[in-house]
């Protein structure tokens, strides 16, 4: 951990939680999988999770593999369906419980409020990298030239060489794909951002760029919840840690 990063985080955390408005509230959140074809086996992955996330803070989930960190992000994104409890998100100034929301409401929340960046890029095989990154801007109503220009600027910042922009990322290296994925996830600024190890295959320089981007998003008022196994990265971006533990097997 660098001294300056530590000081910044240490000062930012109490300020943020004292004054900023809550963006996400998890209340009594639980998740179990019922596997109908494995003799009805039940897997409990989350139980009674309570967390409040404020605008302008970056909370990093910590804990060993199997503690349910990725599952928690997926439940918040409504990629997994919660089994118990509430996922309350502030959307357009109102609170909405995603556990109760209709698919159309969830899609609207994802479009404008809630972003999610995973480790892997999943796209149609033939689409060029530049258009993959520009797509969320076009959905938000920007013109194609303007969207492409901003996408190019972000790819440039993430050190994706310009000769790759016109190519589909299927043949890119893991790190290049991951940067395209990050660019796509961060190109539209959303009030609430979920990150599942988005920097796992990046070198130190590029991790540093991502840390800057996240810092900018946070300072601009986004609430960030993420998983970072790399300790430097974690110390650099986190304003607070949220420890998680694997559930005891009964």
């Amino acid at each position: 951990m660098t001294a300056s990063a530590m000081t910044a985080s240490a000062i930012a955390a109490p300020l943020v939680t004292a004054f900023a408005s809550p963006m996400l509230e998890l209340r009594g959140l639980g998740k179990s999988f019922e596997l109908h074809h494995q003799h009805g086996a039940r897997l409990d992955v989350l139980d009674d999770v309570e967390l409040t996330l404020h605008a302008g803070e970056c909370v990093v989930l910590s804990g060993p593999s199997g503690a349910g960190k990725s599952s928690l992000l997926r439940v918040i994104y409504a990629n997994y369906r919660p089994s118990r409890g509430a996922v309350r998100v502030r959307h357009d100034g109102d609170w909405l419980d995603l556990a109760e929301a209709t698919p159309h409401q969830v899609l609207e929340v994802r479009r404008r409020t809630l972003g999610y960046v995973s480790q892997f890029l999943r796209v149609i095989p033939r689409v060029p990298a530049l258009d993959i990154v520009a797509e969320p801007l076009i959905e938000a109503g920007l013109s194609l030239p303007e969207a492409r220009q901003r996408a190019g600027a972000l790819l440039h910042r993430l050190n994706v060489p310009e000769r790759l922009w016109r190519l589909p990322p299927g043949t890119f290296s893991g790190g290049e794909q991951q940067r395209v994925n990050i660019a796509r996830g961060l190109i539209v600024s959303r009030p609430l951002l979920l990150l599942d190890e988005p920097t796992a295959s990046l070198d130190a320089d590029n991790r540093s760029v991502v840390a800057e981007l996240l810092e900018e998003a946070r300072v601009a008022g986004s609430a960030v919840l993420g998983i970072f196994h790399d300790e430097d990265m974690r110390d650099r971006v986190a304003t607070r840690l949220f420890p998680m533990h694997p559930l005891q097997i009964a």
Binding site: L35, H36, H37, R74, A78, N79, Y80, R81, V106
Partner: peptide
């Protein structure tokens, strides 16, 4: 429901299969 939810967290036995 949501496509990604149905594929990543299918609820019904047939969908799981």
């Amino acid at each position: 429901g949501l496509t990604d939810q149905i594929l990543d967290d299918p609820q019904h036995p047939y969908t799981q299969l």
